[in-house]
């Protein structure tokens, strides 16, 4: 599910990259306007423009609201949850939705709504942290390899190609199986398998910038390689990177839920949406709500993140919207 979102509606044909597998065009890789230290005022204007465009995009605002609300739910879970998410009660097992339990109970008599509310913490954390890890590693690999080019670029990109030649979820499962099941290891695994996306996004941005005049200028002024990478090149990759990372969070949330569904992610009694789904599977027939509601929670959150990410892409790349 890795590239799930990155290729949606990208503007033109993806140039076939030298190397397999075919690479989807990174979102919004247009000519980024150079932003260096000396260009700060222009940056703010750009960002302000982007922000304004974002607010005009109704679906992006909807996405923002959904995600915002879910973040609030996660933060204030103890205040919102009507019941203790861990409290078992064998006398109220598998109850259908009712006034007492708005979304019903599972087969240990736990309140599903409360578990979903607490579960938002796990899913958001898993999505954000694993993506952060992937972005950090991907950016470093992509930036350095591309900047130095030649052999290093080739080596790094072929490594990424090879990683992408394996089904990502199998890699994640294998990593977790070796490290041992658990939420932390699941996040680590998802982070690792997502590295290639970010490495490639950074690479294609930097490739177009490397030979630009302002970089030449910085070099002429005696800036070191590190300075050039961190002060001049990376800030100019931020647009596509932010878009990709946002969409990547959506994917990571689904992957974390998948691993938990397979029993490799969050461990009981932690309320996690994927694990809840798995726990309700054998009740699918007589109590479909046990399985349905955690899934709906995943869909709502992921959809919110996707809408927001799509909006961000449009906002940061004005050319797309006419």
């Amino acid at each position: 599910m890795l590239y799930l979102n990155s290729e949606q509606g990208f503007p033109g044909p993806a140039p076939a990259q030298p190397g397999l597998p075919a690479q989807p065009a990174p979102p919004a890789v247009t000519e980024p306007t150079p932003v260096g230290d000396n260009l700060a005022p222009q940056t703010t204007t750009l960002l302000r423009d982007a922000w304004r465009r974002l607010l005009r995009n109704r679906s992006a605002v909807a996405g923002m609201i959904v995600v915002g609300l879910l973040i609030l739910v996660a933060v204030f879970a103890p205040l919102i949850a009507p019941h203790d998410p861990l409290a078992q009660d064998f006398d109220s097992r598998i109850l259908p939705p009712s006034a007492g339990h708005l979304l019903g109970t599972d087969d240990l008599g736990r309140d599903i709504l409360s578990r979903i509310i607490y579960g938002s913490r796990v899913s958001l954390a898993a999505g954000i942290l694993s993506t952060a890890l992937a972005v950090a590693a991907g950016v470093l690999i992509g930036a350095f390899a591309t900047y130095y080019g030649g052999f290093w670029d080739n080596l790094a990109m072929r490594m990424m190609d090879i990683m992408l030649a394996f089904p990502q979820i199998l890699l994640a499962i294998a990593i977790v199986a070796i490290l041992g099941p658990g939420l932390t290891n699941a996040m680590l695994a998802i982070g690792i398998i997502s590295i290639p996306i970010y490495a490639r996004v950074v690479r294609s941005s930097i490739l177009s910038l490397r030979e630009k005049e302002f970089i030449e200028a910085a070099r002429a002024l005696g800036a070191s390689d590190l300075q050039i990478i961190f002060k001049h090149l990376l800030p100019n990759c931020m647009g596509p990177l932010i878009v990709q990372a946002t969409l990547g969070i959506a994917t990571a949330i689904i992957e974390a839920a998948s691993l938990s569904f397979l029993g490799l992610g969050a461990q009981p009694p932690t309320p996690e949406w994927g694990a809840m789904l798995n726990g309700g599977r054998h009740l699918l027939r007589q109590a479909p709500w046990v399985t349905a509601f955690p899934g709906i929670a995943i869909v709502v959150l992921v959809m919110g993140v996707n809408l927001f990410g799509d909006g961000l892409r449009d906002a940061l790349d004005p050319r797309l919207k006419q």
Partner: peptide, 10 residues
């Protein structure tokens, strides 16, 4: 949009 936001197992 719903389709891309859905876990396949669900």
């Amino acid at each position: 949009l719903l389709g891309v936001s859905m876990p396949v197992f669900w």
